[in-house]
Design a binder for these strands. Structure first.
Lengths: 238, 238
DNA sequence: CGTCGTCTTGATGGGCATCAATACGTGTGG
DNA sequence: CCACACGTATTGATGCCCATCAAGACGACG
């Protein structure tokens, strides 16, 4: 039996006022006076790919904002099967259930190396008493999460697998002129997101490469020679 | 060509302080003083089954709480296909995107005859300035919506269709001792929720009746002779 | 270089889509 | 009140897409 080592690192306490992603993060609307009211430490943490951030059912003491990398949120069903309910992108908030209940309602696992900020929920509740701005921002971020979760499922889980994969890639692609590069994850993870088996993901990628929609498929990324062509494919299935 | 008549009725302005579902609704935490600050009218409306409440892309001026009946929220994809992203149950809040942006991000359509309250968003923003209680309640309701949406998809969209249908029925069933009765909707709507065609829903219902899991299937409802048996089936697929 | 985990590719079978025909229910008009 | 039309639900036949089982390739790492 092998011990599973979860690798993480503490990068210090966050300086939120100077944070590079502050404009897109939770504390965007806070001013200097608000920051002076933050006393509990906000930790800046790094995790390696596949590390566990928290597990469904854990006592929820903090919520998080993702700075770099990708995270999957998975819901584990009573029968043991699991399903990826959301992919967290940089700038997104996750673990907000901490504010409501005592336990996380899903597990958060790193898909890549990640860097994130851990915000103790006591900060939110104490600061929330005094700062309507913070509450507004939470409502806004939360709403974005809901709407991303809904459109994620709607677009990633309808139609033939190749079409779904096209939507998935378009959501994550970083444009470089008319072409682009999109990250890939473990085929099994991608299968959980789109509700197919990993072999099917593999076949779909190969088939789309044959059609000229994708090139240069590796474990971790894929090139999209023409975003326009892929978008047409995703909309019309051609 | 036939004109489609959308039938709705105005039941008057809501008296939120005396509302029967107030404890589970948005204004649960407000006190008398807060209510005195509400000036815009909150309408109490009724819609017939299949009526449109609002449409994706409409200018969003209000959010809603459902009092009676069921509502489907559908997301319409760029390619024209649509998918039910959430089913709204009595006491739930919907249309919260109104607070964030200028347009609704999905359409809301009545599955049955419904009764609901329409809350202009100006109430929330003006009241929100002064009442942290209301903001807390919005965050809470919104979080419930997110978590329902996630668990909805996770449990209703994994596995064989009969298993998914079992989860669906268990979520909506009203217990009567050891048996129960669950509402059904149009087969096409149910198909959109579980991502199958309406014929498949029909076949699944028939097959589960043959197995003794369901009896008395009609257009609008179905009897569950043993909730326990259905739950075992939903968890183990037997 | 060998092992292990992951990815790819092949063969077969099952579940759902699709097309089609029929049955049921509700409302309309004769 | 019955006949008919229309929307919805059921049931059947066929084919496609994906799951499953299996074997082999590739890459990372000790």
């Amino acid at each position: 039996m092998k011990t599973i080592e979860i690798k993480s690192a503490w990068n210090g306490n966050s300086n939120c006022e100077a944070c590079s992603i502050r404009s897109s993060a939770l504390f965007a609307e806070l001013n200097e006076e608000d920051f002076s009211k933050i006393h509990s430490p906000i930790d800046d943490l790094s995790f390696e790919a596949y590390a566990n951030i928290y597990t469904q059912g854990d006592s929820s003491q903090s919520l998080y904002t993702l700075r770099e990398g990708y995270i999957k949120l998975l819901h584990i069903n009573p029968n043991g099967s699991s399903r990826i309910v959301r992919v967290v992108l940089p700038g997104n908030l996750f673990g907000m259930e901490a504010l409501l209940g005592e336990h996380y309602e899903h597990s958060a696992v790193a898909l890549t190396n990640v860097r994130l900020c851990r915000i103790p929920k006591v900060i939110i509740s104490s600061l929330g008493e005094e700062s309507p701005r913070l509450h507004r921002q939470i409502v806004k971020k939360w709403g974005e999460a809901l709407s991303q979760s809904e459109s994620w499922f709607s677009e990633i889980n309808t139609g033939r697998i190749e079409v779904r994969l096209a939507h998935f890639l378009l959501k994550l692609a970083k444009e470089l002129g008319s072409s682009a590069i999109a990250p890939l994850f473990r085929r099994e993870d991608m299968g959980l997101m789109m509700d197919v088996k990993f072999e099917t993901i593999s076949r779909a990628l190969a088939s789309m490469a044959e059609q000229g929609l994708l090139t240069n498929i590796t474990r971790l990324s894929v090139q999209i020679p023409s975003i326009e062509a892929l978008r047409r494919f995703s909309e019309r299935g051609i």
